[in-house]
Each structure stands twice: as C-alpha cells, then as structure tokens.
C-alpha cells in the first residue's frame, strides 16, 4: 500500500464512519431512553411518528434544525457562541483512540488488515481523560454567558461536581492500568485476552468508575446541574435550536465515551464473553453489546433512583469514592509488586 492510502485515505474513511456511527447511536439513544423509561414506568412512550414511534428521533432532529435561534439580549455573544462548540469538540475527539475491534479488512476491500481504532498510541487512556477534562468549559461558559440566574447556578454546580468526580474516576482507572502495564487502549484489551477481564480483580474499582462516570456525564441520580424542579434546565436553559442540540449531542456522546472506556478497561473490549468464543460473533458486535449494556444501565439508574442532595453528592465523592479508589490502588500495587 502506498503512502497516501495508509496515511490519508484510510484514516479519513475511519473518521467518517466513526462520526456517522456516533450520530446514529445518539439518535437511537434518545429513542431508547424515552421507550425504556416509559416501559419502566408502565407507559408506552412515543407512539405517533412511524410504527411504535420509531421515527420520533428524526422528527426531533428536524424540529431542532428548523427552530428559531434565540440569543438573550444581555448575553456575552462571543462566549455564548463558543460554549456549544467547546462542549461538543472534546466529546467527539475522545473517540480517536477507542478500539472498536481488533483488526479489519473492511470486508475484504483492503489487502492488509488495519486496526479498528482510528489511532492507537501509548497514552490512549490518558489522552481520553485529558481531552474530556476540557469538555467542562462548554457547560461553565454556556451557563455564564447566558447572563441569566438559572444557567449560572447550573454551571456552578456542574463545575464543582465534575471537578470533584474527575479525581475518583481517574484513580479508579489506575488499578487496571497497573495490571495491564500500559496506557494504550489496545494494550489494555490485549492484557485481558491473556488473563481474565479486569472486572474480576478490580471489582471495587469498577463500581467506583461506574458511579463517577454517571456523575461526570451529569446523568441521574447525579443530575443536579440540570435539576428540572430547581433550575429549569440548568446551564442550557437559554439555548435553543442547533446550539441546544449541540449540548444534547455532547451529553450523549460523553455517555457513549464513558461506556466505551468501561467496556475496554473492565469488560475486555472486543473480546467474547469467556465460554462463548465458539459462536464466532464478530468482535465489533461484542463491543457494541457491551457498550449497549452500559448505556442501558444509565437509563435504568435514571428510572430507579431519585436525585441526590447537593451536600450528599459532595460527601460521597470526597469522603467515600476517593478513599475507596486509593485503597484499591494500594492493594493492586502491592499485589502487582
């Protein structure tokens, strides 16, 4: 294969595929969220648009495209325009290192198999953490620039929450990194192929990660930044049309990212469930099933648990999750030594 093919054509195609897949998953996710929660509450959910309401997400997207773009008079225009972009760009950038499968030839189109991640480098996991930590500015600046009290309060809450929960989230991922002896996403999965899935030796790390991931994405029961009863819609109250859609997309893309990290780090990525390898299910299907499982947990939690109080939220974060994650690191480090 020549230089242009390896360095330009294949990466571009991969980026376009990943981009399309994320956008489609977000569409499916909005439909699934309404349906799953409706069934859990013994309702039907959307039924009018298309059979069983299947075309509802498309109708929603079209509605958002055609809505009037309202800018508050007292808003800081520059920051107001910048905020949705700052929210969505990091959310999509993190997919750069997510390995969706081992290797592929695109159904025989290529002579040499290529990796199913857009890229893979030695600091993959650190890269995801670094990029996603920038995503918070979309929320903070969006809330401030609207020049309105509910968005400001939502942004403040969100900033405090995300900064607090980033610490235990990162600490919870240190255990698996110690076991795998690498930061590369692909390397972590390959380490699990040799031994067992890291959910077994890192069970407490997994639980801490799961709870912190829900808090990082501002989902129920940690959805204080957008608590409807208190703050209308939190930081994006004043946004409308496509700018609102950007925030919405960023939230769902972030959910998919944290689910993908959980899949790669704790559930063996694209590896088949132990004992089911004889079924010859393609790696990417396993990956999608595992990510889908985590996304379902997000919905399940939202339908099950009430929202935390703000002081409770901070208390669990600092006084429970961080100590548990630290103890987990010490024990893992001792065993690895």
């Amino acid at each position: 294969m020549d230089f242009t093919m390896i360095n330009i054509v294949i990466p571009t195609v991969k980026i376009l595929i990943v981009f399309a897949v994320i956008l489609l998953s977000v569409l499916v996710m909005t439909y699934a969220e309404r349906k799953v929660i409706a069934f859990m509450q013994v309702r039907l959910g959307p039924m009018r648009v298309g059979p069983w309401g299947l075309l509802q997400p498309i109708a929603d997207a079209l509605k958002l495209f055609s809505k009037e773009d309202i800018i508050p008079t007292m808003a800081d225009k520059l920051v107001y325009f910048l905020a949705p972009t700052l929210a969505i760009v990091p959310a999509f950038l993190t997919f750069l290192v997510v390995p969706f499968g081992d290797q592929t030839t695109f159904f025989g189109l290529l002579k040499h198999p290529t990796s199913m991640a857009i890229s893979d480098f030695n600091i993959g996991l650190l890269y995801i953490l670094a990029i996603s930590s920038v995503g918070i500015y979309g929320i903070l600046l969006g809330g401030w620039s609207s020049n309105s009290k509910y968005p400001l309060l939502g942004a403040l809450r969100s900033a405090a929450q995300i900064v607090s929960y980033e610490v235990p989230l990162t600490l919870a991922l240190v255990g698996p990194i110690l076991l795998a002896n690498t930061l590369s996403m692909k390397g972590i999965v390959e380490a699990q192929a040799k031994g067992m899935w890291f959910i077994v030796p890192q069970f407490f790390g997994f639980l801490v990660y799961l709870a912190c991931a829900v808090a990082e994405t501002n989902r129920a029961p940690y959805d204080l930044p957008e608590a409807e009863q208190e703050l209308v819609a939190g930081f994006h109250t004043e946004y409308s049309g496509m700018k609102f859609a950007f925030f919405y997309l960023a939230e769902y893309a972030n959910m998919i990212v944290v689910s993908a990290i959980a899949t790669v780090v704790f559930l063996g990525g694209w590896l088949p469930v132990p004992g089911l390898a004889f079924l010859h299910i393609p790696a990417i299907i396993w990956f999608a099933l595992k990510v889908g499982f985590f996304l379902f947990i997000f919905l399940w939690l939202r339908a099950t648990y009430p929202r935390y109080r703000y002081d409770q939220l901070m208390q669990i974060g600092w006084k429970f999750f961080i100590p548990v994650a630290l103890i987990n690191i010490f024990v893992t480090a001792l065993l690895v030594l």
Binding site: L126, A130, V134, I136, Y137, W144, L152, A159, V163, E166
Partner: peptide, 16 residues
C-alpha cells in the same frame, strides 16, 4: 489534564 482541565476551571469558577 492539569492546566486546561483543572487550574483554569478554578479560575472560571471564581470569576463566575
């Protein structure tokens, strides 16, 4: 992670 994601968040937090 540290400067863009940590320290400047605190700056913004104070400014708000």
């Amino acid at each position: 992670l540290v400067y863009a994601g940590g320290i400047i968040v605190l700056f913004v937090f104070m400014l708000l």
